[in-house]
Nucleic acid binder design. Structure first.
Length: 832
RNA sequence: GCGGAUGUGCCGGAGUGGUCAAACGGGACAGACUCAAGAUCUGUUGGCUUAUGCCUACGAAGGUUCAAAUCCUUUCAUCCGCACCA
């Protein structure tokens, strides 16, 4: 039968919307569930099947939860501020605001056609001043709490984006949006958020998250907590601290290296070394960050010496290209015998090497050492600490230094503060006014939002600087002429808390009400790309903790569970892209096969966290399945067919089908709950095949099947549900329950003896037909089954001598190794 | 270099000690229906020319076990992330 998918889809989408089936209920007492997919940046080219699949993954869960009696919040919105919109608009010769409006309208239309369960009444878009007003409000709060600050610093500059980027947005020394563009270093006055204040909590919280392991590992690495010791080296009467995780090797220090970008570098450089250092710094500056990482370790002597606090030794200080300026103190103690980098450096410049850790299994010698020994061992050449295991020595040496006020135990993090200033137009304006007298003055809360002026000139530099009317304002403090901060905030500030705004998206008085936020948040299941592991997913955690400390929310983590969907590739396995012309559009798919068919097909291809390829042939198989369901309804379930079957149909269904149905309900329920959609489709197919085979199936069983299928194929199941005479929505019906007692009938236990008799009898017959005489039958059975076997019974039935062995019996007679063949319920058999 | 993941039939992919030559789907082949194509249905789809049998197989090589795709060791390959954080 030909199914008119389009007709069915539109019919149900209209009805769902009219009856507001998917709007979350504010005053309901049933338990809440918050499902969220990462909101998109609305691109002009609309969504393709890959995006559609992403939303479908969340949608299936939302539908499943709804039928399981939850009050589901499943909202959608648009991340409409940011560079892509600005660039796309410039390219199209329109204003970003207009460009966005058009894109969003198109997105909503497309998403509605997918039958997604969004509660559109809560929709947000970040370019709405009613939204970004609260970005600014948060900024003011950060400022108030000392978490927002300005500093002149070396920042990552993308020449293509024409703006600064956060560390998280630099990938391999290149821009995260332009992978062919090297990041340059610029020194600018920038605003930062002190995310590092939360470094420890962000780090320690990771282990309790129900997130993909790889994402947690990545965050852990990104935050990078390390325990170590800060040791003061004396240089010219002043204390210069260095950070090390290996205080046990302190006696092996033969030089010290300071970063080429160190703020106080010139304090160390002696006059006669000046020229050489200057020359060296030039070579360092001329290379990009990426090349730097691959460069050989190089450096020059500064002319200064540092005094090792444990033994008073004077060691030379070098300036080196491999020391990170803003980690630790930007200066390191070098122990060439026990660190790879220090070893390479020492070899290159002929610095002495001193072994202080003695490996247990072999010997190394300071003179003949060919590579750094970085493992543990026993301390040698370390004065009073000789003979200690190095782990023990770490503690003892740190204690020793602490006592003498020469060092202390410290924890260091890799995480840096988040630079949020962007020299671009289409972002949240930073609510600051720069006054010649008062400095950076925060805009009073009552003046928020500071809206982006529509009139600006795009071209060179920051467009906001081109609107004098907007830019020049009186200082809120003294009233003198002043200028607005013209930088805007990083687009990630918007996504850091947008999921909270859905809970109370129309609130004009506050960012959200406390009641509403605690009703819905944290998000129960969050679906989105893995590429956000170290950006959005860290920033959101930071924001959540900050808002908690403001007393606005009561939870510590924004997302209980995170799920990363796989990418949907084009048929040839390559990425879908407009330029390649391989984009699969949901409208087209929907017209050809129906959107439910596509949902079923994509669900059945692979686990949703895996990358999959679109396959035009494969989807036909799913269409066949759906057509079969309709045919089955026509042949067996419609009014006429049911009347004919009535007599046969009265007792519901066969025992086998009943057991299968109960099993499938049980399993599929678990599958939906854990994003194992593929397995759900498999069991649903099996169940349907059995129904198809038996034909005479009760209405209830068929309805249960439809319910189980509904999250994946919502439109067609609604349609059939209605055809069966149901008046309410299947989407609102309750999830089928299974009966524990009916589960096991499928694998009924059969008496081993009779099964064995049957089998062995057949085999004996065949063998004897060939002229072989059999007198003895050896059976090798599993140890835990041996008690089930009854020798007299077997003997009587088979008329042969029976010798029974446990498969583990060392003494058994088994010339052909038949004991290996033993399985549960069936022994290994050997005849004589 | 470090960290994480993966490796199963023609393909996508289940299976994590026993009833596994391996679910489910796709593809292919054969047959039924049809004038024909499509759709649908049935069967086959590692090898061995009779099989409730034997052999070969779950990246490769060893090992543990009565029994291994599943556990252990080593190794190779692919993918992803980080990249001098002392």
């Amino acid at each position: 039968m030909e199914i008119d998918f389009k007709l069915i889809e539109e019919k149900w989408q209209k009805r769902w919307e009219a009856k507001r089936v998917f709007e979350a209920k504010e005053n309901s007492k049933i338990p809440n569930y918050y499902v969220l997919e990462m909101f998109p940046y609305p691109s002009g080219s609309g969504l393709h099947m890959g995006h559609a699949w992403n939303y479908t993954i969340g949608d299936i869960l939302a539908r499943f939860k709804l039928m399981n009696g939850f009050n589901v919040l499943h909202p959608m919105g648009y991340d409409s501020l940011g560079l892509p919109a600005e660039n796309a608009a410039i390219e199209a010769g329109t204003h970003p605001a207009d460009y966005n409006k058009k894109s969003i309208t198109n997105y909503i239309k497309q998403q509605k056609a997918l039958g997604l369960t969004y509660d559109w009444s809560r929709m947000i878009s970040t370019d709405n001043p009613e939204f970004y007003k609260w970005d600014q409000w948060i900024f003011l709060k950060m400022l108030e709490k000392g978490l927002a600050y300005q500093k002149e610093s070396a920042v990552n500059w993308c020449p293509k984006c024409n703006t600064v980027l956060a560390n998280e947005q630099v990938v391999d020394g290149k821009c995260w949006r332009h992978d062919g563009t090297n990041i340059e270093t610029k020194h600018l006055n920038q605003w930062f958020f002190k995310i590092t204040n939360y470094a420890d909590e962000l780090y320690e919280g990771i282990k309790n998250l129900d997130w993909p392991e790889r994402t947690k590992t990545m965050q852990k690495y990104w935050i990078g907590k390390s325990y170590g010791t800060e040791i003061d080296f004396e240089v010219g009467g002043e204390k210069w601290p260095v950070f090390t995780t290996r205080p046990d090797t302190i006696f092996g220090v033969t030089f010290v290296v300071v970063s080429a970008q160190h703020k106080k570098l010139w304090d160390l450089v002696k006059d006669k070394q000046k020229k050489e250092v200057e020359k060296f710094l030039k070579t360092v500056k001329s290379v990009s960050e990426k090349e730097m990482a691959e460069m050989e370790k190089e450096g020059v002597f500064t002319g200064s010496y540092a005094i090792n606090p444990v033994n008073g030794e004077k060691v030379p200080i070098y300036v080196g290209n491999f020391v990170v300026a803003d980690y630790g103190s930007g200066m390191v103690m070098a122990v060439p015998a026990h660190d790879k980098r220090d070893f390479a450096f020492a070899k290159k410049y002929g610095v002495p090497i001193k072994v202080v850790i003695d490996p247990k299994d072999f010997e190394i010698d300071s003179k003949k050492i060919t590579e750094a020994y970085v493992e543990g061992g026993t301390l040698i050449n370390s004065g009073e600490f000789d003979g200690l295991e190095n782990d023990e020595a770490k503690k003892k040496i740190t204690k020793f230094l602490e006592k003498k006020s020469l060092g202390r135990e410290v924890i260091n993090f890799r995480l840096r503060d988040w630079g949020i200033s962007r020299q671009r137009y289409w972002g949240t304006p930073i609510p600051i006014i720069h006054c010649g007298d008062c400095g950076a003055v925060p805009v009073p809360e009552k003046d928020l939002p500071i809206e982006l002026p529509k009139k600006v000139k795009f071209g060179k530099g920051n467009p906001l600087l081109t609107n004098a009317e907007w830019l020049n304002v009186p200082c809120p403090k003294c009233g003198k002429n002043a200028k607005r901060e013209a930088d805007t905030m990083d687009t990630f500030v918007n996504s850091s808390w947008y999921f909270m705004r859905y809970c109370d998206s129309k609130n004009k008085k506050a960012i959200f009400s406390k009641d509403k936020i605690s009703k819905w948040c944290p998000v129960d299941s969050y679906v989105g790309g893995a590429e956000h592991a170290c950006m959005h997913l860290i920033y959101s955690r930071f924001y959540t903790k900050f808002l908690r400390d403001l007393g606005l929310v009561e939870f510590d983590e924004p997302f209980k569970k995170v799920f990363h969907q796989g990418m949907l590739h084009a048929e040839d396995g390559s990425k879908m892209s407009k330029s390649k012309g391989n984009v699969v559009l949901p409208e087209v798919v929907s017209g050809k096969y129906g959107i439910d068919t596509a949902r079923f097909f994509l669900s059945s291809l692979a686990s949703p966290d895996k990358d999959i390829d679109w396959n035009e042939k494969g989807i036909i198989g799913s269409k066949r399945f759906i057509a079969k369901i309709f045919d089955f309804y026509d042949e067996n379930m419609n009014g006429a067919a049911r009347r004919t079957h009535k007599a046969l149909n009265s007792g519901s269904y066969s025992e086998k089908l009943e057991a299968k149905l109960n099993n499938v309900i049980k399993n599929v329920t678990g599958y939906y709950d854990n994003f194992k959609y593929r397995k759900a489709t498999i069991e649903l197919r099996e169940l349907f095949d059995l129904m198809h085979l038996e034909k005479k199936v009760s209405k209830k069983a068929f309805e249960d099947f439809l319910k189980l299928l509904n999250p994946i194929c919502p439109h067609i199941t609604e349609e059939l549900w209605e055809k069966l005479g149901n008046k309410k929505f299947i989407s609102n019906s309750s999830w089928p329950k299974y009966n524990e007692k009916k589960l096991k009938i499928l694998n009924k236990e059969i008496d081993v003896n009779s099964k064995v008799i049957e089998n062995v009898f057949e085999t004996i017959k065949r063998v004897e037909e060939k002229g072989k005489k059999i007198s003895k039958v050896y059976l090798y059975v599993l140890p835990f089954e041996i008690s089930k076997y009854q020798i007299p019974k077997l003997k009587k039935a088979l008329g042969k001598e029976i010798i029974l062995y446990s498969v583990k019996d060392d003494e058994k007679h088994d010339p052909e190794n038949k004991s290996k063949k033993a399985r549960p319920g069936m022994p290994g058999i050997y005849f004589e």
